[in-house]
Design a protein around this nucleic acid. Sequence first.
DNA 1: GCTAGTGCACTGGTCTGACCAGTAGGCTAC
DNA 2: GTAGCCTACTGGTCAGACCAGTGCACTAGC
Lengths: 241, 241
Amino acid sequence: MGGPRFQPVRTVRAYERIVEQIEQAVESGELRPGERLPSERDLMVQFSVSRSTVREALRVLQARGMVRSRPGDPNGAEVLPFTPAALHKSMTTLARVDELSLAELVQFRMVLEGAAYLLAARLHTPSQLADMDAAIARMRAAEGEEAFGAADVDFHDAVARASGNKLILICSDVVRSIVLNLIADKIRAPELRSRSIAHHEEALAAVRAGDGPLAARLARQALSDFYSPYLPEGALDELLE
Amino acid sequence: MGGPRFQPVRTVRAYERIVEQIEQAVESGELRPGERLPSERDLMVQFSVSRSTVREALRVLQARGMVRSRPGDPNGAEVLPFTPAALHKSMTTLARVDELSLAELVQFRMVLEGAAYLLAARLHTPSQLADMDAAIARMRAAEGEEAFGAADVDFHDAVARASGNKLILICSDVVRSIVLNLIADKIRAPELRSRSIAHHEEALAAVRAGDGPLAARLARQALSDFYSPYLPEGALDELLE
DNA sequence: GCTAGTGCACTGGTCTGACCAGTAGGCTAC
DNA sequence: GTAGCCTACTGGTCAGACCAGTGCACTAGC
């Protein structure tokens, strides 16, 4: 050993270069959400490749959720604002393929929600508290399962938003929807509702009082209560004090 | 209102159907990592579509990290084990496009690492403790930045693994690498090393003693210490008691 | 004048068929 | 027995074509 240090080479496909270029244009702000890409036929001229190559690049970008194309649209593909759809997709795959257990997912939710409540208790603004109040009111007023669930989601969203951390917000959202999807076939007994509302109100009171640790503990406890029927005994105990 | 409830329709592209079918085959275990897909020309017969359509489907699957194809490979595309690459990608985009601040990322790390230490303190096995010891030994023995960094990563990985939660492990990993990437241009002053090692050892001692809350607090504190130079004053205080 | 309807030019989705540069494995010549 | 060639494949790319949609300008009718 001692000769020149060579680097492994990798052949780069044409469509990958196109993906890179468009991706960079989006990330640098040169292309903003809502704007349109040139048509595929224009792109094939600009990149001087064939249309199939352009299309493969667009498929990759579409899979990443950065772009959407609609047949017949005279304006070409639309640049989309970032959505956690791709994040959601890969986490879902992770959950399905990589033997991620429901316990792990719920535990992760407990971690995230706990942090969200902790931060929310210290950072909340009046309007965010109002959002939480409104969500609880909607939960109480809800007629069907659907409306109740939506209001429930709104509440957790408001808390996560109050945490001031977008990553917590997005990840909570993704994991929650995956978890709910996993147990969608089992029934959410309506008699749990009043208890669920009470839990939410306690946690909200702690948030309002600025008692982060208490709010976090209540939130974890509520999650543990809610999901323990679907889990082996004691699977979530580690995160409860 | 009162007529039949119609559902919005969505035209489904041919390549999407192919993606679904292959994806499902992978998720159901019918196709296992390491196995090969038929060649594109075979697939076009099986799905009775053209090769371009098959290829667009493969591009999508490849973008999701489920499949890899190599020119000339007589065996067709390879089914890959799940990697967090797609997760990594979408989180990186999130960080770049969605104005995710370094503070949010580090805060998120504090949340995850805190949880990892907390769980590790309660669930660790002897061999996992040994892994952590070994990693610290490597940190101490490291000559260059690179070796030190690698050992550091190994340590955190060992802790996350000891948490027993694969989601925490993977997400910590992803977020850590994004954060390190963001501050890669700044120097990691070598004089911080001995302090960093000391921090790790304190936290490890708490883990060994089974004191989860202490371990978690030390871990958060260490992260806060390490990253505060790159952040506005007090940006991480909310998660320190 | 304005609106309703009709074309048209263009889009993306798909297909066909072709070429090229790689690869792996069998075959041949030594 | 082995080194090296051959071949039958592979994926990557290209060219050209058709179709069903879409939006818009234009036009016919009021």
